[in-house]
Write a protein that binds this DNA or RNA. Structure first.
Lengths: 219, 219
DNA sequence: GATTGTGTCAACATTGTGTCGAGTACGTCG
DNA sequence: CGACGTACTCGACACAATGTTGACACAATC
């Protein structure tokens, strides 16, 4: 998903003035935002804070972004672009080495979240109030769910996993669990699973849920 | 937990004027809020909306509540009071009939949520921005976690459940999952588990996680 | 040198929150 | 009865944050 809709349409990039200007300012806003998000929730950050941090006035901010949320969305877009190429994806190892496959799925999620906690936790926080971000998350979730439920069905088909609730429903529940558990682990809201254990705990739940044991049948 | 802190201290209740006044207004605000929450998120509701809905002016609103959030907190308090007496609690049936015990735990959570979805989903939404509500949820969560992890340990002790990750960590993860899954089921955000299946799906995950099977050993 | 597009901001308009202080209605006590 | 206190009410204000407008600057191109 490209996020053209969020950043104001910048005119043709052909001619670039030599002033200390242009994209620099946009980047300055973005990095100010990411920095501030490490300390404060998005709701506590004003547009003025972002503008000042980037060395511009508040009205000028609106030249670059249409709102605070759209800054977050752009940040998110950048994070995910990096990520989508890093996590090329637990490939076809599913039937060969299921445990490894699922561990890698989880680690991918963990890594995503961990590398840019500030941005990702902010996203979680505003998903309820911002329609665009809400849609963005729904979209991502849908793709994960599809992928995971196909994997579960494949495992059931080859007899490695027993039958059970609809694969899609399990995938949804497990996926929501991951998000929520990682969120509270990273924000440190009590009660939370300690960061050192979080992958193991989640993996355990995934495996037992899918296979009714922690030692699934390998290829 | 009583929420004295949230409602302004009403003076002695001794003398009651006969005007269409007093507690009536407070109740009017509360029911207006609950009604509006069925259609809109709390962030979309202004204090003026609440005041108008209750037939008073905005400043008068502040006579009864210190803020929008404190209305929600009071609403929550009422919901929970009803609930804490309804769900007296899956008692000592744990070792006799484990499946039933866990099903009742889940159903209690489901019922809580379901009966006052508007209030509960609003709570989820503002937990990230309101410290008081955040604390309230953390508190409730902590008590559930304690209770659940003790139950898991008891099952392990009597050999009904196999060893595994720290009981507390499982309890935290399962608990967060419940909240999150029920939230999206009730708001209907896609992807969500359909309401008709949600208890079965969650129960399945709980049982397999705790017992590594859906048929635990009964007493 | 005129034109065009990028970039800038002071000043304004708007919306929502919270407060203050002057008021009104009602029960009570002299 | 009347004056006193308390519950209650709201107009008018102060404030904070958001978003908009219109005039202006500068560089690149014609």
């Amino acid at each position: 998903m490209t996020l053209d809709s969020t950043a104001k349409p910048r005119a043709s990039r052909g001619r670039r003035p030599s002033r200390p200007t242009g994209d620099d300012r946009e980047l300055a806003i973005l990095s100010t935002a990411e920095k501030l998000l490490e300390q404060h929730a998005l709701s506590e950050i004003s547009i003025d804070d972002l503008a000042r941090g980037a060395g511009i006035s508040r009205p000028t901010f609106y030249f670059y972004f249409r709102s605070k949320d759209s800054v977050l969305l752009t940040l998110l877009d950048r994070v995910i672009q990096k990520l989508d190429q890093a996590v090329v994806g637990p490939s076809e190892r599913l039937s060969e080495d299921p445990v490894r496959y699922w561990r890698e799925c989880l680690e991918a999620t963990y890594t995503t979240f961990s590398a840019h906690r500030a941005v990702l936790t902010a996203t979680v926080q505003v998903q309820h109030t911002n329609a665009e971000i809400h849609r963005w998350r729904a979209d991502r979730a849908e793709r994960w769910v599809t992928r995971i439920s196909q994997a579960i069905e494949a495992e059931r088909a080859r007899g490695a996993a027993p039958p059970g609730p609809r694969a899609r429903d399990l995938a949804i529940a497990l996926n929501l669990m991951n998000d929520r558990v990682l969120y509270s682990t990273f924000t440190g809201d009590e009660p939370a699973v300690p960061e050192s254990d979080v992958i193991d705990v989640l993996l355990n739940i995934w495996l037992t849920t899918i296979y009714q044991t922690t030692q699934p049948i390998a290829g």
